[in-house]
Amino acid sequence: MSDDGYTRITLRIPTPLDEKLNVAARVTSKSKNAEIIQRLEQSFLDDDEASRAKILAPLQMIVPPADYKPLIRLLAAELSDALNERVFLGRSPSKQRDSIEEETPPEAQPPSKNS
């Protein structure tokens, strides 16, 4: 890779494909290089979208698309809660529980499992 953030490559492509790239570059007022980069980047985005669609397909059978955002918010909140239980300001869950119980007045604490 050079200092400009690009890697130079030599590429052999079929002549008809080269002609299509030349036409597409002219139509979009880009260089052929810019056209190739844009098309390659788009192909990766399309791959990502296809992967997402493949993952979401079973979900779409169960949950209507209008309910995705609330469901995602719920899942994000659950994940956040789970992570906070595992790591709370660098303390283990048992230390977290102890510190919360110390800070919480007895009348506001949930009943213990032993009672």
Rank of each mutant, 00 (worst) to 15 (best):
P105N: 13
D3S: 14
A108H: 12
P14R: 13
A66R: 02
A57F: 11
S94G: 02
T28V: 09
S112W: 01
V63Q: 02
S80C: 14
D47P: 06
Q42V: 04
V27P: 07
P65L: 05
P93R: 02
I100M: 14
R39F: 03
E49Q: 06
Y6L: 12
R91Y: 10
A76Q: 13
S112M: 00
P16L: 04
L40R: 01
S99V: 11
A25I: 10
T104M: 14
S99G: 06
E78W: 00
G5S: 12
P93S: 02
K95R: 14
I100H: 03
I36Y: 06
D67T: 02
R91H: 06
S29G: 08
E102L: 05
I55Q: 15
V27G: 11
T104D: 10
D46P: 04
P16C: 01
P64I: 04
Q60I: 04
I55T: 08
I13G: 00
E107L: 01
E78I: 05
K113H: 11
L79F: 02
P111Q: 11
S31A: 00
Q109T: 06
D47F: 14
K32Y: 09
D46R: 12
A34I: 06
R39N: 14
P105E: 15
R73F: 00
D47M: 11
Q109P: 03
E35V: 08
L17A: 05
S31L: 07
E101I: 10
F88E: 09
P70A: 02
D4P: 01
E41D: 15
A24F: 00
L59R: 01
E85A: 15
Q96Y: 12
E19W: 07
T10E: 07
T28I: 04
M61F: 05
R73S: 02
I100E: 11
D81N: 08
K95V: 13
D3Y: 06
S43N: 15
K20E: 12
V23Q: 12
I9K: 11
K113C: 00
N22H: 10
E19C: 00
A25Q: 01
S31W: 00
S92N: 13
P58I: 00
P65D: 09
A82Y: 10
T15H: 08
S31D: 06
L74S: 08
P110F: 08
E101T: 02
Q38N: 08
L21S: 08
K113P: 03
S92G: 15
F44D: 11
I9D: 06
E102G: 03
E19H: 11
R12D: 05
Y68L: 01
E101H: 13
I37L: 15
T7N: 08
S2Y: 07
K113I: 08
P70C: 02
P106V: 08
